[in-house]
């Protein structure tokens, strides 16, 4: 078996009721229904090799979760061929479940009232994990995370971070071939985020588990993904490694400037003065960010122009950040 996951020309359509407005409209809806077809996933093809970590990116409603739900077997594709570990997921849901692990954002799949260790024991029975494999897994977990903190705590008493951590541990427990993580770091603080990223990376390395994750967090992408897939409006916009993407936008630099003048005045002036120069301007409380395409204009020229008229407290020059790259793709395509 070459590929762990194979999507060929996958399309998923939903039938949605066109609701009419107002009371009269909903009354009409009772008698005559007007459906429209919404295409959530539009001809996506993709193959993932064993052991890869692939990040799915895209704005809300782009079709990421729908794609994941098809790969886990919850949804049946409208069209196209889909194989996970050599199986058609929605046809062999039970067997497929044995070989995948899933974490869906903030929806814990653990038994709410039970201490984590009891949940693990139940999962051991449900997945029929042999005792030695289970022991090995527990040993590994004890090395990777602070087990004492969570092992005997009922899930309902855990913090969101501990719960996510527990859910991820549970998803890897039966040593699945593929683990799907839907926004694993959503709502967590910075320390917990990095803890979770380390854990995912380590489990991927040690168990050679294929990991598919969706995220909005560029930190996740930078820390975890060798490869990213960008989806928008159901279509695949990009599928390659992150380095490639940066190279693609390599001619872009971000020039950061801390002005002496008031921020909004400064931004207004700059917008006028640099109008001809194809520079994108944004700002926060302290800094003005100028995204410059060096193939067209040099950063020094821009800087010179600014310094003719304004006083600058501080300046920095940066490579384009992953976040900017993604934003650019959402807005303008490749």
């Amino acid at each position: 078996m070459e590929n762990m996951i194979e999507l060929k020309d996958i399309t998923k359509e939903f039938k949605v009721l066109n609701r009419r407005e107002g009371l009269k409209g909903s009354f009409q809806d009772l008698f005559s229904r007007d459906y429209k077809i919404v295409r959530a996933v539009d001809h996506i093809s993709l193959s993932v090799k064993p052991g890869e970590i692939v990040g799915f990116l895209g704005p809300n409603g782009a079709g990421k979760s729908t794609t994941i739900k098809m790969m886990t077997g919850v949804l049946e594709p409208t069209n196209g061929e889909l194989l996970v570990n050599g199986r058609i997921p929605y046809k062999n849901r039970t067997q497929n479940s044995q070989e995948i692990g899933v974490v869906f954002g903030q929806r814990s799949q653990l038994w709410w009232a039970l201490p984590l260790i009891e949940s693990f024991k139940l999962l051991k029975d449900i997945y029929q994990i042999p005792q030695d494999e289970y022991d090995g897994m527990m040993e590994l977990y004890a090395k990777l995370v602070n087990f004492d903190e969570i092992l005997h705590k009922p899930v309902r008493q855990m913090s969101l971070g501990q719960r996510t951590l527990s859910d991820i541990l549970a998803a890897f427990l039966h040593n699945p071939k593929v683990v799907f993580l839907d926004e694993p770091t959503i709502g967590l603080d910075v320390a917990m985020k990095s803890k979770i990223r380390e854990l995912i990376l380590e489990l991927n390395k040690q168990k050679h588990t294929t990991v598919i994750l969706t995220t909005h967090d560029m930190g996740d992408v930078d820390a975890l993904c060798e490869r990213i897939v960008i989806i928008d409006k159901g279509k695949m916009l990009y599928d390659n490694d992150i380095e490639h993407l940066r190279k693609f936008f390599g001619a872009y630099r971000t020039l950061k400037i801390r002005p002496r003048e008031k921020m909004d005045v400064m931004v207004e002036d700059l917008t006028k003065e640099l109008e001809m120069m194809d520079v994108r301007i944004s700002h926060d409380d302290e800094w003005v960010f100028l995204l410059v395409n060096e193939e067209k204009t040099s950063v020094l020229k821009v800087l010179g122009l600014i310094q003719e008229k304004h006083k600058i407290k501080d300046m920095q020059l940066e490579e384009i950040s992953t976040e900017d790259v993604i934003k650019k793709i959402y807005k303008e395509g490749i």
């Binding site: 886990t72 039970t94 929806r107 449900i126």
Partner: peptide, 12 residues
């Protein structure tokens, strides 16, 4: 939409 969490176990 929480029902989805029951759908990933290899049992009935």
């Amino acid at each position: 939409g929480d029902f989805v969490k029951y759908c990933f176990r290899p049992i009935n």
